[in-house]
Amino acid sequence: MIRPATDDDADAVTTIVKTAFEGYIPRMGVAPIPMVMDYRAAIAAGKVWVAGDPIAGLVLLEDEPDSLLLDVLAVSPDAQGRGIGAALLAFTEAEARARGFDRITLYTNAAMTENIAYYPRHGYVETGRETVEDRHRVFFRKDLT
């Protein structure tokens, strides 16, 4: 079950993001951006959806001018490998279509090699790379048409 997150979910969402991303700190030398985001504010703005009961994963989605941005996808390490990430990606596609978008975009850090392998298995195509300060970003797109 995937549903909009509520304020009561904020602590669980923050914990899942922390545990899902903390392993990347040694590779990146800095906390990944999802670890420092204000999830209570994102939930209040209606941008976060959660999966599972208890919550095992989440997505944070942002409307962009020409696409739906998959800003954060996180699955609890205890729940990884059970299809929750794939279900959240399918939800994101349905949500993009419902909002009138024919494209989903996202970016990840180059040090997150698991993500760079994961997204193409789900139809995403790498569209570019850039370095901003100390972060090396890899951009992906999925066209829904």
Rank of each mutant, 00 (worst) to 15 (best):
A56V: 15
A5W: 02
I16F: 04
N109A: 11
A74K: 06
D63S: 15
G81F: 08
G123F: 00
R27E: 14
V13K: 05
I55W: 04
A41Y: 04
I116H: 01
V132L: 14
R137S: 09
P4R: 10
R103Q: 13
R103D: 07
Y119N: 01
R99E: 07
I104T: 01
A5Q: 02
P120F: 00
L69H: 12
A90R: 14
A117I: 08
V75P: 01
T145K: 13
V30G: 02
D143E: 15
Y119Q: 01
R3S: 05
W49P: 00
Q80T: 12
L60E: 13
D66T: 12
V125A: 14
A110L: 11
R27Y: 13
N115V: 02
A117T: 12
E93V: 14
V125Q: 12
M28N: 06
G46C: 03
Y107V: 06
K18S: 12
D143T: 11
K47F: 03
D11C: 08
F101D: 05
P34S: 09
D38A: 12
S76G: 11
V50M: 06
R3C: 06
V75S: 07
G52K: 04
F21M: 01
A98R: 15
D8A: 15
K47W: 08
P4A: 12
E22G: 03
